[in-house]
């Protein structure tokens, strides 16, 4: 990793954190879902600020170029994030299903009661 690249990456990470915190502050991002984003950012920062860590990782896994090591991390995080999103979506759709069923059953009760009152 060249010096120029490290500077660019650090600036990019800074923007990344600003965006995450801005969204958190505006409550457009729930804290429980932001933890993975923050963890991602912190790990990437560590790797850029202390390139030794990245070099050790690359040697352990037999990756020739440190940049590829960084990509490996980035792709790994993206996959984790997508998995988390899919899991959240699945849970949400289950909850929506429950709500839809409840509201339909409730609507029937209301309708039946209205009919009874009108009699």
């Amino acid at each position: 990793m060249t010096g120029t690249l490290r500077v660019i990456l650090i600036v990019a990470l800074l923007f990344y954190f600003i965006i995450v915190f801005f969204l958190l502050k505006k409550r457009r991002l729930a804290l429980k879902y932001s933890l993975l984003w923050l963890f991602m950012g912190i790990t990437m920062t560590m790797l850029v600020v202390f390139p030794r860590l990245l070099e050790i990782f690359c040697r352990l896994f037999g990756i020739a170029d440190t940049m590829n090591g960084l990509f490996t991390f980035a792709i790994g995080f993206i996959l984790m994030l997508l998995m988390a999103l899919t899991s959240i979506v699945s849970k949400q759709s289950d909850r929506i299903k429950e709500l839809v069923q409840e509201s339909a059953l409730m609507e029937k009760r209301v309708r039946d009661l209205e009919k009874e009152i009108q009699k």
């Binding site: 929506i96 299903k97 839809v100 069923q101 509201s103 339909a104 059953l105 609507e107 029937k108």
Partner: peptide, 24 residues
């Protein structure tokens, strides 16, 4: 006698609403 789901859930969700009604 009917219940009407406000969103389309697919056959499984519909049937389950029926079972919930039967249970209650």
């Amino acid at each position: 006698k009917y219940v009407s789901l406000p969103l389309n859930l697919g056959i499984g969700g519909g049937i389950q609403a029926g079972y919930k009604f039967a249970l209650r």
